[in-house]
Write a protein that binds this DNA or RNA. Structure first.
Lengths: 167, 167
DNA sequence: TATTGTTATACTCTATAACTATA
DNA sequence: TATAGTTATAGAGTATAACAATA
């Protein structure tokens, strides 16, 4: 099955963090104009996107899903709230800062999605919808794998394979 | 063939830019300690890594390969040169700023690679070496696909598939 | 006492435009 | 005139620690 295992990569291209960075840079460049034209930053857009498929989320969850540190998220909350795109939600636990999309926020989200959909389709057509799906699954599974690797390093139940991990 | 096409993803996980970002964040977190412990930033490390497999490179090439904007690269050159890790190289075209690794730069590079190798092996073992290879190829091919998509948008020879790309 | 989030702070990267030098 | 790179500058993200409020 000719699934992308034939290409020979230069050493530089075999670095996973760099390959992820470069692919992201290229992909982001495709979609960033749609975000920019609505005066949103990419982190702000990730927050809107995460909220669009959940009724309400707290800061901790958003920070994890959107890869945004708490201090940045505080600023983003302030900005998006001022613009009327998100609104606070009452919560049992008063420590938690939960927010949801306002109607205005949701319609802005849907506007951006609609505008960028043709470009996403062009990308899917050019790359191959099946391969795109495979890539998305691999990316999410890679993240799971790495996150499951983290835990054993913290205590001393680490398997210790070929050599001890340094630090 | 059970190659990652069975998992069902949430909507949020189907965003390519976000999936790339989250995977990179997780992966980077694994390797960043090795970079940090030698007082390097990730962009600086990418420059060293790119130079390690080429005799000498100019700023433009490095900027593209390492995803670093020219102004940042100027600063990085200054810093790495002061530390004796890179050195300027004479060049026919006096506009070009070419640099190469010094011996000290190369030995630092090899030290970092050696220290992080066990972690990379653990990751490869956990994720599966074949799938890792597939992922790397897909990432590089995605970048190619996107870069080839850019060009047709600039003139009016664009195929115009389902709908006109907005902007 | 642990958790959640904010504030404060310093640093780096991002991004653009304007400028210099070279081809 | 076009290209390569630097400088200047504003803004945003990154990262840590210290703090406040709540559980």
């Amino acid at each position: 099955m000719a699934l992308s295992t034939t290409t020979s990569l230069r050493k530089f291209e075999k670095s996973l963090p760099i390959a992820l960075l470069r692919s992201r840079e290229a992909t982001t460049r495709l979609f960033k104009p749609f975000i920019d034209s609505h005066d949103l930053t990419m982190p702000q857009w990730r927050v809107l996107r995460a909220l669009a498929e959940a009724d309400a989320l707290d800061a901790k969850t958003l920070a994890e899903r959107c890869v945004i540190l708490p201090p940045s998220l505080t600023r983003i909350f302030r900005c998006l709230t001022q613009r009327g795109l998100i609104a606070p939600v009452d919560c049992n636990d008063a420590r938690r800062h939960m927010v949801r999309l306002t109607d205005e926020g949701r319609s802005l989200f849907e506007e951006v999605v609609e505008e960028s959909e043709p470009t996403y389709q062009r990308l899917a057509d050019a790359f191959g919808p099946t391969r795109l799906d495979t890539l998305l699954n691999l990316l999410n599974e890679l993240r799971d794998t790495v996150q499951n690797m983290d835990a054993p390093l913290k205590d001393d139940t680490e398997p210790v394979r070929k050599a001890a991990a340094s630090r």
